[in-house]
Amino acid sequence: MNRNIIIAFILIAAGIAVFFNASKDVSTYANFGQASHGDKVKIVGQLAKDKPMQYDPQNNPNEFSFFMKDTDGVEKKVILHQPKPQDFEMSEQIVVTGKLENDVFNASEILMKCPSKYKDEEIAIKSQENQQ
């Protein structure tokens, strides 16, 4: 019995240690205002469709720039250090991971949310109807 208690104690201690350690891996989605401290953050927002997008693979295939509006409506230029993602223009919501430097957000990762399947279905039926 004694030994089991020791083992349980070790496990719980390890669990607590990992929990506190891991809580540093977790953060909320930030906005551009919060990103000004220069930390690596995740920002949710939308593509500013009226602003220019730039991708010039001949110069640098690892750089794609666009403007993004965060949830507070603040707009900033984002440089994604990756090729331009597929169907980027169609995205409803974007999550970028990176750092804000000199008023430009340098993103190393991007996640896009595209219109749901059900909308597609409507379109599919409508477009088929147009064909007749």
């Binding site: 693979p57 001949q58 110069n59 640098n60 295939p61 690892n62 750089e63 440089i79 250090h81 990756q82 090729p83 430097e101 340098n106 190393s108």
Partner: peptide, 22 residues
């Protein structure tokens, strides 16, 4: 990785894994 691409200020390893081929 394309060694001829101009190095920009943001230098994380993982983002330099794509290359343009003509």
């Amino acid at each position: 990785t394309n060694p001829f691409v101009f190095k920009n200020m943001f230098s994380e390893e993982d983002v330099k894994k794509y290359v343009q081929l003509i």
